[in-house]
Design a protein around this nucleic acid. Structure first.
Length: 195
DNA sequence: CTTCAGATGCTCT
DNA sequence: GAGCATCTGAAGA
């Protein structure tokens, strides 16, 4: 598996969001390696996107990470109890990112199941199995990603994305989720996923 | 399968 | 003080 370098993220955000589909998210914790194939992403383009936390280059303590170099993890708390994982894209100082909304297990799902449910895969209900990693908060819980990893460099050894040669099928496109406040940006077709 | 209420705490005004 | 890039469990169709 080949780790994606900074040049991968230093491109148009919509392109990065599409290209991330099918790639492998890798998270190393205590010597254990958690992996999942990325199946759903959303693009957030600060300079023009009212759904982006850093719309119009808005700088606050929270959005500071979005101004970091491409290939930086932006992780924030949402609804008081869940985290969302993003990858910063485009040139440093251009506040753009891709939100990871879903993936499927690659390799041993046991550590992911333990993180998310405190149970082994065999002990999950069929409903839990069907809805294992299909949401940004679920994904973060399974990979044990929280704000302590905000700002992590994705070219390091802790959290990164790799290409294992998997060729995705057709990319589905639609509107983003949970951004009803974002006026015209509500309808931007900036959500991408694999069936 | 669907809807619905409630949880929970940080962020910015 | 208002709102949030969400999830869960319970209840109904």
């Amino acid at each position: 598996m080949e780790k994606l370098g900074r040049e991968f993220y230093n491109r148009d955000t919509l392109t990065v969001a599409r290209d991330l589909l099918g790639k492998v998210l890798v998270r190393v914790e205590h010597g254990k390696v958690l992996t999942g194939r990325i199946t759903e992403t959303e693009a957030y383009v600060g300079p023009i996107d009212k759904a982006c936390h850093a719309y119009n280059y808005k700088r606050t303590p929270r959005t500071e990470t979005l101004f970091a170099p491409p290939g930086t993890a932006y992780i924030y708390l949402i609804y008081g109890m869940y985290c969302c994982l993003n990858f910063v894209t485009e040139a440093e100082g251009t506040p753009c990112a891709v939100l990871l909304r879903g993936c499927t297990p690659v390799g041993d799902p046991a550590p992911l199941a333990l993180n998310r449910f405190g149970r082994l895969p065999d002990e999950l209900t069929s409903y839990q199995r069907k809805n294992f990693l299909n949401g940004p908060g679920k994904l973060c819980k399974a990979f044990h990603l929280d704000r302590s990893l905000n700002g992590t460099d994705l070219t390091g050894e802790v959290l990164y994305v790799a290409d294992d040669g998997f060729i995705p099928g057709e990319i589905q496109v639609g509107e983003r989720i949970g951004i009803d406040y974002a006026e015209e940006a509500v309808h931007f077709p900036w959500r991408f996923w694999l069936d």
